[in-house]
Nucleic acid binder design. Structure first.
Lengths: 156, 156
DNA sequence: TTGCTCCTCACGTCACGTGAGGTGGC
DNA sequence: TTGCTCCTCACGTCACGTGAGGTGGC
């Protein structure tokens, strides 16, 4: 996993292998995401090689988080990352002179989607913490058992 | 997801459909886990139906947690749940008069495995929390944008 | 020229989903 | 007898993994 700042700092376009390494996936995964339309590289070389801009890599990082931390399917992820582009879509709507009500609807829908995500994150957070507490209790039980064993038959 | 206490309270053996509902999976999943040897029901009816004891369901709940919260593969999960049975294996080793060194090794290996799990849980916890903070910041940005929109073109 | 990375098929895999056809207990 | 749930094949699906065979720039 690469930090945001280091991603943004290198303003260079990456070849598929470099982008894959930065994201912790394989080139095959990026080709699959491209095939699905989930993450299309914003450029290509003359030879047909995919070129990933920093913004592409950031989008890829969001996809990974949703996949790894929340276990979302790629189609669910597609819906989320699309609603993530709301500020850009809003700018375009304003440029095209969309009515104020339509602009508001765009924003409120994105806010709702983001709130649902926040609720799931809080839920996951609670469950991981509970699981960790279980495992800490187990650690203490095992340690106590080991101490009992040592007391009963001391090491040579 | 069913609470531990309610699971332990009903000391009854469950048919596959009931066990699946308690675990939040489908019967097909439990048959697959059985086929892999990951979770074999501790009993069967004369007619060949699988019967899941409360301890089977608890084991299933641990499998689900490892799968959902940490994204482990079923073979990784198999290794973890096997090392989870260490206290029972220790009892058997002692009954068979295993040497003290072997008993200690059993315990220390289980402690190590559990500690690795704890490290992964802490890592996951941090990443989910960081992701949640990102999403909270996004929520605030979107809300501010909506307020700006409302100030600019008040609702009818 | 030799490596290295890239490309497109295309088949394999993991963890199930989904009928197909049939059996068994209230 | 009628539902309901169970059973075992067995093919389909999702998200890639893994070569197979070939191209392109230092």
């Amino acid at each position: 996993v690469v930090s945001r700042s280091s991603l943004a700092a290198s303003g260079r376009a990456l070849r598929i292998g470099e982008a894959a390494r930065a994201l912790g996936v394989t080139p095959r995964t990026l080709r699959y995401w491209d095939e699905l339309g989930l993450l299309a590289p914003s450029g290509h070389t003359e030879g047909g090689e995919r070129l990933y801009a920093p913004s592409d890599v950031e989008r890829g990082a969001r996809i990974r988080e949703l996949q790894e931390l929340l276990g979302f399917s790629l189609s669910q992820i597609g819906a989320v990352v699309q609603s993530d582009d709301v500020l850009e879509r809003l700018r375009r709507a304003r440029a095209e002179g969309a009515p104020a009500a339509a602009q508001r609807r765009l924003l409120t829908e994105a806010i709702e989607a983001n709130d649902e995500l926040l609720a799931r994150l809080d839920d996951t957070l609670g469950r991981v913490a509970a699981f960790r507490d279980e495992r800490r209790a187990k650690r203490d039980r095992l340690r106590a058992r080991l101490r009992a064993l040592a007391a009963e038959a001391p090491e040579p």
